[in-house]
């Protein structure tokens, strides 16, 4: 009996961890964990999720007096919509009750290991989004081309650095510096290329904008702690990008 309780808790926690690490909203994580525990008969489930950790305690009912709790620290956060969708579908299936706990754990592990797009396609679409962003904000065709090349380079390097688990702050500084260097090179090749237009898209790939919107979204939903945590993260990311780009632009104006 006791092991079953622990297994259910670990399964729910693992599902929550995958969701939180891949950018799901706080209420979705809490909701999923509660549903998974209730599906196995633990009606007194309390979940508290912030952007940096998950706290769960479960029990059969409120008078049973055999509460067990678990804390999970979350260190890295990115966005992977495919995993969110897969875990969501998994929890919908699991609640129906015909999946055993061991099978469920295996399914979650498989979900966590999927990667749907290879590196070069990822980098290519990074170029597409960056270059069309330049057009969206009134760039010309030369800026389109230079943003495309910059975008591919920045996305590839960021992806590489994230995979070898380089510190996130330094990763974003590197991204900003590469965007700055490329923008300066292209703008000195042809006078109609503006530095801002080349940089604008590459910055969006480092997503401070989505982070700040999610932060406000969480705060409106009443998850105030994780709202502030995400807002801080967005500010730090924006700061590191500005640091990288600003450093390069400053060097350029000093020496030339």
């Amino acid at each position: 009996m006791e092991t079953a309780k622990k297994d259910v808790l670990l399964l729910a926690l693992y599902a929550g961890e995958i969701l939180l690490k891949n950018g799901a909203e706080t209420y979705r994580v809490e909701d999923t964990i509660t549903r998974l525990c209730k599906a196995k008969g633990f009606n007194d489930t309390n979940v508290f999720v912030t952007a940096t950790g998950i706290f769960v305690s479960i029990d059969k009912d409120i008078n049973h007096n055999q509460v067990i709790s678990y804390i999970k620290r979350i260190n890295s956060r990115g966005i992977n919509l495919n995993k969110i969708s897969k875990v969501n579908n998994f929890s919908r299936e699991f609640v129906k009750g015909h999946i055993s706990i061991a099978d469920g754990m295996d399914m979650l592990r498989k979900i966590n290991e999927i990667s749907i797009y290879p590196h070069y396609i990822y980098a290519f679409f990074g170029g597409i989004s960056t270059s069309f962003f330049a057009l969206l904000f009134g760039g010309n065709m030369l800026e389109f081309g230079s943003a495309f090349i910059t975008g591919i380079l920045v996305t590839y390097v960021l992806n590489f650095l994230t995979n070898i688990q380089f510190p996130p702050f330094l990763t974003n500084i590197c991204g900003g510096m590469i965007a700055g260097i490329m923008a300066i090179i292209f703008s000195s090749l042809h006078p109609s290329v503006q530095i801002d237009k080349v940089i604008i898209g590459s910055i969006m790939t480092m997503v401070p904008g989505v982070a700040i919107t999610n932060a406000v979204h969480d705060s409106i939903n009443g998850d105030l702690v994780s709202g502030w945590a995400k807002a801080t993260e967005a500010l730090i990311v924006a700061c590191s990008i500005a640091f990288g780009v600003g450093f390069i632009l400053k060097l350029w104006t000093i020496f030339f």
Binding site: S85, I116, Y117, I121, S129, F132, T155
Partner: peptide
């Protein structure tokens, strides 16, 4: 095009 590019960057399902 821009949104499609970002959808791939965020690993959206195909």
């Amino acid at each position: 095009m821009c949104t499609i590019g970002f959808a791939v960057l965020f690993y959206a399902p195909k």
